[in-house]
Amino acid sequence: MTALPPYLPTLMVEDIVRAALLEDLGRAGDITTAATIAPHLTATATMNVREAGVVVGLDLARAAFRLVDPSLAFEALANDGDRVAAGTAIARISGPARGLLSAERVALNFLMHLSGVATTTARYADAIAHTTAKVCCTRKTLPGLRTVEKYAVRLGGGSNHRYGLDDAILIKDNHIAVSGGVAPAIRAAQAYAGHLVRVEVEVDGLEQMGQALSATPDAILLDNMGPDLLREAVALNATHWQLSADVYATDRRRTRLEASGNVDLTTIAAIAETGVDYISTSKITMAAPTLDIGLDIGIGNP
């Protein structure tokens, strides 16, 4: 079944964009534009993608122009999630020149960054498209932008890990060290969690994985394991759940396996081919380069 596209409520978009505009406008507003552009002047502008990629952030760009000047007209010429070629026009804005110029940088910042996240995610997703594995983002996101970065990851073909500390339990090595072991930590989490909260545990080897399987968590994170060890982990999981190779991938009862660590475009295919379900990496958010998008402006209405 094909998943419906991700959606950002308008209220969430406005809060994020408003904060960015207030940061940029500072205490006195756009004094350069106020000093050089007469209030009656109008202009038109086109946003153009200067390199191939996945476009994300059009709703945030629209909100930036609208919040600065509600009389500005914003026409999207593409949709979030579209793969576009270099030279593609993705939006047209027209109206008072002052508002257009004051909102330009914030609108472009969101578009360039989120399109960069989506484009990078798409490259990772394309590299493992021949497998059943999914590439996932992590909590390593820019402060204040997690919601929109995770939105961009999904539009790039990736999957979201937990959004924060409150929507899923992920028991990491330090939790295990303090709580007294893998299985005790899992059982404590299961006793604490509500029935809709999933429990995942991080392990660093097959011995710890065996301990984890004895407590049946929902997922196991295989930390910094090479392809050979990952294949052994998949085999151990199949044996634990008594599953043959032909039904393993689709069986919904078994523990899901996530690989993490040493993931990049040169390694992700080999990791995916081991049979793990998810591959998490911060590179699709924290290390994603921006997509080059420009705004070309002219005087007067179209």
Rank of each mutant, 00 (worst) to 15 (best):
R231F: 11
A107M: 02
A38E: 12
L72F: 12
L295W: 03
P96G: 14
A215Q: 02
A86R: 02
F74A: 11
T33F: 12
A20H: 00
N109R: 08
H113A: 11
M47N: 06
G95P: 00
G53D: 00
H161T: 12
V234W: 10
A238G: 13
T44C: 11
A103C: 08
T274I: 08
Y192W: 07
E273M: 09
P184K: 09
G144M: 10
A91F: 07
A272G: 09
P96M: 00
T132P: 10
P6Q: 05
W241T: 10
A272N: 04
L60I: 11
A288R: 04
D69Q: 05
R18Y: 09
D126V: 07
L257H: 03
S282K: 03
P5N: 11
T255E: 07
K140V: 09
Y248H: 10
L22N: 13
T44E: 11
R18Q: 12
M225K: 10
D59Y: 06
L213I: 04
R18V: 05
G300T: 08
A34C: 00
I279V: 12
D126L: 11
A97M: 09
V197Y: 03
L295D: 01
L265E: 13
G81T: 10
A193D: 01
A76K: 13
G157L: 06
S260L: 04
P302Y: 02
P289Q: 10
Y124W: 12
K140I: 03
L155V: 09
P302Q: 03
R105V: 03
T281D: 04
A287R: 02
V106A: 03
G87T: 06
Y278W: 14
R253Y: 04
N109L: 01
P6E: 09
N160E: 13
L222G: 07
H40C: 07
Y278V: 13
I128S: 06
R253F: 08
P39Y: 00
E149I: 07
A86K: 05
I169L: 06
P289M: 11
A287I: 03
A78S: 15
T42M: 05
A52Y: 02
